[in-house]
């Protein structure tokens, strides 16, 4: 897993590097888990199918993050891990496993409103993939 946050005054800049596009989406899932419940354990008791298409890998990544945010906001669903069936720079088919937010073991974190297109980039680089996404808090 390889991600880090870069300094931003009000929001959060997320940088992810992965050996493959699948690594990138797996890391994005881990980041969203950490950003919704901190270090608390998240079990895989519930799952959601995610099928998305987009014109480019950067659009695909923000749609994917958005989907996770919506599941959290509507059902308090926290992602634990991702099982990918099909993935290309313009399409993902996967199941996200996780559970609903549980006060007894999860620490609430500040709300993430959205994944923005400001400075958004998802690129294939030497040795893998690299992404930068600004999250609106």
């Amino acid at each position: 897993m390889s991600y880090r946050f870069l300094p931003h005054t009000a929001d959060l800049i997320l940088e992810i590097s992965g050996a493959s596009l699948a690594d990138l989406f797996n890391d994005a899932t881990s980041v969203m888990r950490a950003l919704t419940v901190g270090n608390g354990l998240v079990e895989a008791t519930e799952s959601h199918l995610i099928e998305l298409q987009a014109s480019s890998p950067d659009e695909l990544l923000i749609r994917f993050i958005r989907e996770l945010l919506v599941h959290f906001q509507i059902d308090t669903f926290v992602p634990a891990n991702l099982v990918i069936y099909r993935l290309s720079p313009s399409r993902i088919s996967a199941t996200v496993h996780g559970e609903r937010f549980d006060d007894s073991k999860h620490e609430p974190q500040p709300e993430i409103k959205a994944a923005t297109r400001h400075r958004l980039s998802v690129e294939e680089v030497e040795g893998g993939w690299h992404a930068v996404v600004v999250l609106d808090l």
């Binding site: 005054t9 929001d11 923005t116 400001h118 600004v134 609106d136």
Partner: peptide, 9 residues
Amino acid sequence: IHWGYGFPI
């Protein structure tokens, strides 16, 4: 003013 996304805040 501070750094936002798109427009500045």
